Simulated scan of single mutants.
Amino acid sequence: MKIGEIIKRLRKAKGFSQMELAEKIGITYQQLQKYEKGKSKITVDRLIDIARALDVPLSAILSEIYKKENIEIYSEEEIVFLEYFRKISDPELRKSFLKIFEQLSKK
């Protein structure tokens, strides 16, 4: 299933019009229409915005795409953790966090 079709299905299931969802994510309804029809590529950042606006985990959208592929999908918590981790600019602090999580995972 194509990503635009998934977005359209989820949007309708949540009861949003194209105009309502587009406003929630800060784009025109025409751009959302292009996403849903597969005429424009969707960035990961935009996909995250759409998932949040629809109040669904990003993995709900991605899992539809990869159902047949047997690819592991990250949970919403893992995605959020990765977003925060990437914002840590100090390499030593990043290493420290990794050591902490390594120790926590052994318990």
Score class of each variant (00 low, 15 high):
M1A: 04
M1K: 02
M1P: 13
M1S: 11
K2Y: 04
I3V: 11
G4I: 06
G4M: 00
I6H: 08
I6K: 08
I6V: 15
I6S: 08
K8T: 10
K8L: 13
R9E: 13
R9G: 05
L10T: 10
L10A: 09
R11C: 02
R11Q: 00
K12D: 09
A13M: 00
K14P: 12
G15T: 03
G15L: 02
G15C: 01
F16G: 06
Q18V: 02
Q18Y: 08
Q18C: 05
M19F: 14
M19I: 14
E20A: 14
E20L: 01
E20P: 12
L21Q: 10
L21R: 08
A22R: 04
A22K: 05
E23A: 12
E23I: 06
K24S: 14
I27P: 14
T28L: 00
Y29L: 05
Y29E: 14
Q30V: 01
L32P: 10
Q33W: 10
K34A: 11
Y35F: 15
Y35E: 09
E36I: 05
E36T: 00
E36A: 05
K37Y: 06
G38I: 04
G38F: 07
S40E: 04
K41D: 15
I42E: 02
I42A: 01
I42C: 04
T43K: 11
T43V: 09
T43S: 15
D45Y: 02
D45A: 10
R46A: 14
R46T: 15
R46N: 13
I50M: 06
I50Y: 09
A51T: 05
R52K: 14
R52H: 13
L54D: 03
L54Y: 01
D55L: 01
P57L: 04
P57T: 01
P57I: 03
L58D: 00
L58Y: 08
L58A: 01
S59D: 14
A60M: 13
A60H: 13
I61R: 06
L62H: 10
L62P: 13
S63M: 09
E64K: 06
I65N: 04
I65G: 04
Y66K: 05
K67Q: 15
K67T: 12
K68M: 11
K68R: 14
K68L: 13
E69M: 07
E69Q: 13
I71Y: 11
E72W: 08
I73P: 13
Y74V: 11
Y74M: 15
E76L: 07
E77F: 08
I79G: 05
V80P: 12
F81N: 07
L82K: 12
L82F: 03
R86I: 01
R86T: 00
R86M: 02
R86V: 00
R86S: 03
I88Q: 00
S89D: 15
D90Q: 02
L93P: 10
L93Y: 11
L93I: 11
R94T: 00
S96A: 10
F97G: 07
F97P: 10
F97R: 04
L98C: 09
L98F: 09
L98G: 10
K99P: 09
I100P: 07
I100Y: 06
F101K: 05
F101I: 09
F101M: 12
E102L: 06
Q103C: 07
L104A: 11
S105T: 05
K106G: 05
